[in-house]
Design a protein around this nucleic acid. Structure first.
Ligand SMILES: [Zn+2]
Ligand SMILES: [Zn+2]
Ligand SMILES: [Zn+2]
Ligand SMILES: [Zn+2]
Lengths: 157, 157
DNA sequence: GTTGTAATGTTACAACATTACATTATTTTC
DNA sequence: GAAAATAATGTAATGTTGTAACATTACAAC
C-alpha cells in the first residue's frame, strides 16, 4: 500500500475541498482558513492557540466556540485528529491519500509538539485486538497516542 | 509470572501502608481515606468526584487542591493510575502483587467507567517498540488507554 | 520546647470545553 | 426572485479540570 503523504498546503486544501463537494459538506472560508492555519503550523495546537493564530493570520477575531465547532467539522471530515492526551489538534497526514485510514498511531513529541502519524501494521493491530478481545472488551475509538521525544529534539539537547 | 490481583480493600490498604513504611513515605489518614474511597468505587473517578465522595463518605470537606496533591502522591507511590484520556483516576490492580509493573494497558468502558488493567505482553511490547523506533522516536510515558464497551455493558442493552 | 519539614488549607486564576440562545448566510421551495 | 427552511457563526454565560502562591497546621528531630 502506497502512502502519498500531504505535501503542500494548497494541494491539501484542494483535496479537502473536493472531498467535501463529493460528500455534500460545506467547506466554508473559515473552515478552510482553520485548516490552512493548522497546515502552516507544523505542530499540534490547542483550540485557543488556533483562535489566537486565526486573529494573527487573518486579522479577524473568532470565538472559542466557533473554533470548537470548526474542529468538530474537520474531525468528522477526517481532516484533523484530536490528541486526547494533550487536548490538542493536528492535521491528518493522509488527507491526500486514497486508501482507507488505518488505526492511527500518533507519536507526540513533548518537546516541540510535532506529531508523526504512523499507521499501525496489520499484524500488530490484530495482535492488539486479540489481546484485548481476551477480556471480551469491544474497542470503540482506535487511536494510539504515544508520548516521547522526536529524533530532532533528541539530537539537540 | 503469577498475578495476584487486588482482592479486598483492607488487604490493599495494609499493603499500601507497608510499602509506604518501607520507602519512608507518609501514608496519612487522608491519603488512606482517598485510596479506600477509590477502592470502594469500582470505577474511574475525576478529582472532583473524589472530593464529593470524600465529603459524603467521611463527612468532612476537602479542597480540590488537596485531592490533586493526594492523587499525585498515590500516583508516585504507584497505587493509582491517571487516565489521561478521560482525566480520571483509578486504583492500580497490582498493588498487592510482588512483581515489577509492566506497561499498563487500560481498557476503559465508556458506558460504566469500569477499567480493566491488563498487561501488554512482552512480545507485543517489543513489536510496538520496534514499530516506533523505526521513526527514531523515543518513548517516554508508556501507558496504553483503550476506549470501548466492557463485556457487562455489551450484554445489557 | 524550638526548629525544620511535610502536609493540608485558602484563594485566585488559567486552560479547555459546552450550553443556550441570537443572528447571519446559504439552500430549497414555491 | 421572495419566503421558508436549514446550516453556520456569534455572543454570553457557565462548567470542568488543573495549577500557582501563600498561609496554616501537624509532625519529627534535636
Ligand atoms: Zn490520520
Ligand atoms: Zn521534537
Ligand atoms: Zn497498575
Ligand atoms: Zn461497562
Amino acid at each position: 500500500m502506497k502512502h502519498i503523504l500531504n505535501k503542500n498546503t494548497q494541494e491539501v486544501l484542494q483535496a479537502a475541498q473536493k472531498q467535501c463537494q463529493q460528500q455534500g459538506l460545506r467547506f466554508t472560508t473559515k473552515r478552510s482558513n482553520v485548516l490552512q492555519l493548522m497546515l502552516n503550523e507544523n505542530k499540534s495546537l490547542s483550540a485557543y492557540d488556533i483562535m489566537a493564530e486565526y486573529k494573527t493570520q487573518y486579522n479577524q477575531s473568532i470565538s472559542a466556540v466557533s473554533v470548537y465547532r470548526m474542529l468538530d467539522f474537520l474531525i468528522h471530515a477526517q481532516f484533523v485528529h484530536k490528541l486526547i492526551s494533550s487536548s490538542q489538534y493536528i492535521v491528518c497526514s493522509h488527507i491526500t491519500c486514497h486508501h482507507a485510514h488505518e488505526i492511527p498511531q500518533l507519536l507526540i513529541c513533548d518537546t516541540c509538539h510535532q506529531v508523526e502519524e504512523i499507521s499501525i501494521g496489520k499484524l500488530l493491530a490484530s495482535e492488539l485486538e486479540a489481546n484485548i478481545a481476551a477480556s471480551g472488551f469491544k474497542l470503540q475509538r482506535q487511536q494510539l497516542e504515544l508520548h516521547g521525544v522526536c529524533i530532532s529534539c533528541q539530537n539537540l539537547h
